[in-house]
Write a protein that binds this DNA or RNA. Structure first.
Length: 136
RNA sequence: UGCAGAAACAGAAUUGUCGUCCCGAAUUUAUUUCGGGAAGGAAAGUCCGGACAGCAUAGGGCACCGCACCAUCUAACUGAUGGGAUUUAGUUACGCGAGUAAUUGAAGACAGAAAGUGUCACAGAAAAUAACCGUCCCGAUGUAAAAAUCGGGACAAGGGUGAAAACGGGAGGUAAGAGCUCACGAAUCGUACAAGCAAUUGUAUGAUUGGAAAAACCUUGCGGGCUGAAAGGUCAAAUAAAUUCCGCUCAGAUGUUGCCCGCAUCUCGCUUGCGAAAGCAAGAGGCGGAACGGGUUGACUGCUUGAUCACGAUUGUGAAAUCGUGACCAGAUAAAUGACAAUUGAGAAACAGAAUCCGGCUUAUUAAUUUCUGCAACAA
RNA sequence: GUCCCCGUAGUUCAACGGAUAGAAUAGAAGUUUCCUAAACUUUUGAUCCCAGUUCGAUUCUGGGCGGGGAUA
């Protein structure tokens, strides 16, 4: 699965700035009012909103400084998550294409050990399918 | 030869697929294609020094903070380079010895304790104005003579204590002693001459022998405005520069980091009362503080061409400087360099991710090589 | 990012540079009680780490580590 382009999907595998959650307002709403669930080793929060944003689905990736004091390790984990998301985001986006509301959600890494890429990708796929099923 | 420590050097390359950020060009108006670039030696700690920016500023003194052998380098430094003295480890030579000289390393916050105040536990007679034991002299009692006891003196040679005990050991000298004197040696301060830009060194000579600690206060010399890119500038959007309470209110306020001296600036107009007027008095506007609130959470700039990097030449012991040629080498903003394979290879492992930018310092660190030091073994 | 402050028993605090580092409280064991509480007795520390100054450092100095705070 890794390295090969996945055929049969119209969604490109890019991950541009528009697909990242940068608005502080939406972030506050997400953490204050959004619903959330835990899928080890990730904590996922999500909210639907009507703000004018460039992309229908926006994601925020975060690793707490408490668990990983070194910036190198935090960067590494965020890159692994980002990589797994951009390869498998079609699972979520293709189901969202029919709805009008925008979706913002966060992925927080809660484990205290550096993960392997294959574990991260497997969990991200499970996470995305659960998220798309939960929000109808 | 092995192990440990320190220093220097270095901190992988290439290919494929899918991706991120910036710049440029084309196509064309929101996408695509092509080309180029994209973390470090410490990006870290934020310990020094600057650049840059805003605010403040007539001037002086005190306080406060920092630094401290000399010279040089530098934009600057608590940095670096070179030199000096000191301490320390080893070797050799000379000397009875104390020591001296030469040489090879290593170390360091190396101004002043001989300006003043304070401190030095326990032990010890005494911790800086040294008489406890002791040594010696004189007098009295005592005795055959001593011993012993009491009183008055002299003495820092010996003793134990302690981290530290009042230049060293030798000879003379003396009642006993003492740098009291002498030769040798040590240290400190001064003078003259010579060498050196200087620290300082050498020779001659005079005086002195003064315990430690300034990382106790302190003294001397030199330096220091305050705040940091969340600084600062421009634009847009939104809203209520609103309300309440307390204090002061004409000799006070403001400014100068704090304090003092001194200086500068402001003190205005309005209302009311008194008065012929000059003016005087009062009031509010005013100033300061506190409480409770409201709006924004965007964009651009600062933002990367610089005390820059590479190569070469010249000058200098060196840090470094000058000249020439060439290069443009991250600029993000919830924050960009990744993932998975393959090859080269003995191996890809350590510490670790730019946030305004530089020069240092400190700390972290894998492997190979080189140099130095220590230890162990073997050989001679 | 920038600028500050603080580290002593499990916890809250003491300690002119002089040692055997204390106090309260908590914990453990014991005495007392039919049992518990209270009371009494005993017990518990490499002063965060590494260097330096000093005869001697919790204290003074430098570096590191950890924790906390302020700031549009």
């Amino acid at each position: 699965m890794s390295g090969e382009p996945i055929t049969g999907s119209a969604t490109p595998q890019t991950f541009k700035k528009a697909e990242r959650l940068t608005s502080k307002k939406i972030m506050d709403e997400l953490f204050n009012r959004g619903s959330s669930f835990v899928l080890y080793p990730f904590r996922v929060g999500s909210i639907e909103h009507d703000y004018n944003v460039p992309s229908k689905v926006q994601v925020l990736i975060s690793v707490p400084k408490k668990n990983f004091p070194l910036a190198v390790h935090r960067n590494r984990i965020k890159r692994l998550i980002r990589e797994a998301y951009r390869k498998n985001k079609f699972l979520l986006i293709e189901k969202r294409s029919s709805t009008k509301k925008n979706l913002a959600f966060s992925i927080v890494f809660t484990d205290k050990k550096l993960p392997d890429y294959f574990l991260v990708e497997e969990k991200i796929i499970a996470l995305l399918t659960q998220l798309s099923r939960q929000i109808k």
